[in-house]
Amino acid sequence: DESGSGNLLRSPATPLIPHPLENSWTLWFASPAAKNKQAAWESSLRLIYTFSTVQEFWSLYNNIHPPSKLAPGADLYCFKHKIEPKWEDPICANGGKWSVNCTRGKADTLWLYTLLAMIGEQFDYGDEICGAVVNVRGKQEKIGLWTKTATNEAAQTSIGRQWKELLDYNETIGFIFHDEAKRLERSAKNRHTNSD
């Protein structure tokens, strides 16, 4: 063990030994109340906590609402440390996102499995992952998986396929480029799809 710590014992019986994550991840939250008070979405976005071990992840996750308990209008983000969940972030700027939709109250498991896949580095193109967001709305919940290089079709196709497998999600999912979403808003077209 080059780290000298020898602490990667993979047994749940040793919970006090930290299990470090490959990346540190930051949780961000935009509450609907803050959005109402302030015109700019950006000013409603708050950094909540940065975690870097399995234990810290669960300590955080077990104390915050799952998507089904968040108010309509809330957005919850989990992004790699130092990547801001904004189109303008230099690492996100040339990226895009895969999206899955579900009816209100049904995203909890999909969100958890997305988080576990990211922090557990289950994607072959893990370096391409920026983070994930769940948008809670009145009638639906949408999860977005943000990636770095929208034009890297091989990476996006792999990530989309693996994400569907990890979520056991059977419907077609689409990938939208951030720069097109920014320019065209709702008329932005899917540039990659996965309907396997």
């Binding site: 994550l21 490959e22 399995v54 669960w58 576990l116 896949a117 557990g120």
Partner: peptide, 17 residues
């Protein structure tokens, strides 16, 4: 890379409250 499967991560889910 430090890779952890979902099943492995879930074994810790109720240990850190």
């Amino acid at each position: 890379q430090r890779k952890y499967t979902r099943d492995f991560l879930l074994t810790f889910s109720d240990q850190f409250n």
